[in-house]
């Protein structure tokens, strides 16, 4: 184990890049629906239990299955209403289990990126070849079912090894959502030496963290989103910021939570100078316009 993986260099916020997003936007907004498949009877991982109760944990399983059966359509139609294309953090086995959901998202030109095979399979304990095979499987599966080249990664159930980002870059990846250290994209050092960036993914605004870990009230979640937006929008005048709202249909799409979320979404998409986009587009734009400048100033690659 190492004290710090040294994935990025220190950069103080008051010296951030004066980023301007397309059309002079000061804030890039992306919404990340996590579309996940949890297994009823996953194999045991030596370092992490998949379910708190003995298998079959029908409460945990049913909670997640609800997202695909009931919640997905609600969440998707709400994003349609506000002109948001989702950037999907995908348990890629869902391409096989629930292709109807994949088709609905593909029709809308949403972005698909890898969130592992299943959210009940963890990389803890894998050697390099094993983890590479999981990453390559996920890239291959997305290409096969959606025609998209997978550009981004959010590790399954946020399980990592020291090599995760190196391996994803080698598999053709461009960005990671696994790092929560900044409100702007930053270069990430990977052994391939290829450009690779972190696109901010707010774990603090992730509905599962909000509702399950922090046990927040639905209307308070709406306020949190508005308050985060107000601050990032204001600061974006000095240097473009990124705001991400990570969602799970099994959390946000319950009937007692939709209205409060809709109010917040209407608010943030109702402003000018907001680039409503996907993570891949943010990563590409940053690499094309700001990556070299950032590396020259703070080092990376």
């Amino acid at each position: 184990m190492r004290e710090d993986l040294g994935l990025y260099d220190y950069r103080p916020w008051d010296e951030r890049l004066p980023i301007r997003w397309p059309n002079g936007a000061r804030l890039a907004l992306w919404v990340a629906p996590n579309i996940e498949f949890y297994e009823l009877e996953p194999p045991a991982n030596p370092q992490r239990k998949a379910w708190p109760r003995p298998i079959p944990d029908i409460q945990g399983y049913g909670t997640r299955d609800y997202g695909n059966r009931v919640g997905h359509m609600r969440m998707m139609e709400l994003l349609d209403t506000y002109g948001v294309r989702g950037s999907i953090s995908l348990s890629v086995a869902l391409c096989e289990h629930h292709p109807e959901i994949i088709d609905l998202c593909a029709e809308r030109n949403w972005e698909f990126f890898s969130h592992g095979i299943y959210n009940t399979r963890y990389v803890y304990g894998m050697d390099e070849d094993q983890e590479r095979s999981v990453i390559e499987d996920s890239v291959r599966t997305i290409a096969k079912h959606t025609g998209q080249q997978c550009a981004g990664y959010l590790a399954p159930a946020l399980t990592h090894t020291e090599r995760t980002l190196d391996l994803f870059s080698e598999a053709g990846g461009l960005y990671t959502c696994d790092l929560f250290h900044d409100d702007q994209p930053t270069p990430v050092k990977v052994r391939s030496g290829k450009p690779f960036v972190s696109v901010p993914y707010s774990l603090e605004l992730n509905d599962t963290i909000v509702y399950v870990v922090n046990r927040v009230e639905p209307r308070r979640y709406g306020e949190m989103i508005r308050q985060a937006f107000d601050r990032l929008y204001r600061e974006g005048e000095q240097g473009g910021t990124v705001m991400c709202v990570p969602l799970h249909a099994y959390q946000v799409a319950h009937p007692h939570r939709m209205r409060a979320f809709e109010d917040a979404l209407a608010y943030v998409t109702g402003h000018s100078d907001v680039w409503v986009t996907t993570a891949r587009e943010i990563a590409k734009y940053y690499v094309e316009h700001y990556y070299d400048q950032a590396v020259a100033r703070w080092g990376a690659a």
Binding site: L40, A93, E96, I117, Y118, G125, M126, D127, D129, Q130
Partner: peptide, 16 residues
Amino acid sequence: PLDPDYLKYPHRRYGM
């Protein structure tokens, strides 16, 4: 490494 079975997905198919 992990048991190779950990990377097998016997129920990876259409449906549940």
